[in-house]
Simulated assay, not measured.
Amino acid sequence: MSDEAQPPRMTAQTAMVPPPDPQAAVSIRALVKCYRGRPAVNALSLDIPRGSFYGIVGPNGAGKTTTLNMMTGLLMPDSGKVMILGRDVWSDVDTAKRVIGVMPQGDQIFDRLTGLQLLVYSGMLRRMPRSEALGRARDLLEAFDLTDAGGKRVCDYSSGMTKKICLATAMIHSPRLLVLDEPFESVDPVSSANLKDILAEYVDTGGTVVISSHVMALVERMCTHVAIIDHGLVRADGTVAQVAAGEDLEDRFLELVGGRHQAKRIAWLNGSGSEEDQETE
Rank of each mutant, 00 (worst) to 15 (best):
E275F: 08
G37T: 12
R87E: 11
M83A: 06
A245S: 11
L119I: 01
G259T: 10
H261F: 11
M71W: 06
P189A: 04
E185R: 11
P8H: 06
D107V: 02
C155W: 02
R112A: 04
E132S: 05
G51M: 08
T14F: 00
L199K: 03
G150K: 04
C155T: 06
V154K: 07
Q108V: 01
Q117R: 08
I229E: 10
D204S: 14
A267D: 12
D237M: 08
V226S: 03
P175W: 05
D230V: 00
N60D: 14
L195H: 04
G151T: 08
G58A: 09
L177V: 15
R265F: 10
D230K: 04
T239K: 02
R112D: 13
H225I: 12
A12V: 14
D88F: 07
S27I: 11
S79E: 10
V102K: 13
E275W: 07
I48N: 09
A96I: 06
D21K: 07
H173R: 07
A244L: 00
L269H: 12
P20N: 10
P183R: 00
E250H: 08
V209K: 04
A263M: 15
M222S: 10
S45M: 09
L195P: 03
A24Q: 10
G232T: 11
P59I: 06
L113H: 05
V203A: 07
G160C: 05
S274M: 03
A236L: 04
K33F: 14
S212C: 13
S131A: 15
T205H: 08
E276L: 14
P7Q: 09
P7C: 06
S52I: 08
G151Y: 05
L256W: 02
A5K: 11
D145F: 01
P77A: 08
L254K: 00
T72V: 14
G80K: 03
R87W: 01
G271R: 13
N69K: 14
N69A: 08
K64Q: 11
V26G: 06
M222L: 13
P18L: 11
Y121M: 11
C34D: 14
D237G: 02
Q278T: 06
T65I: 06
Y121F: 15
E247Q: 13
E132V: 13
T205Y: 02
E142N: 09
K97L: 03
Q262R: 14
M124S: 02
S186I: 03
R138V: 05
T239F: 01
A24H: 09
A267E: 13
S122M: 15
K196H: 11
L167V: 10
K264W: 06
G160Q: 02
A137D: 01
R130F: 05
G55Y: 03
L249H: 00
I229C: 10
L269M: 11
Q23E: 12
V240N: 02
V26R: 03
A5I: 05
S122C: 14
M124Q: 14
A200S: 15
R50H: 07
T169W: 03
D47I: 06
D78A: 05
F53I: 11
V215C: 05
A30G: 14
A40C: 13
D230L: 00
R126G: 02
R130D: 00
A217G: 13
I28L: 12
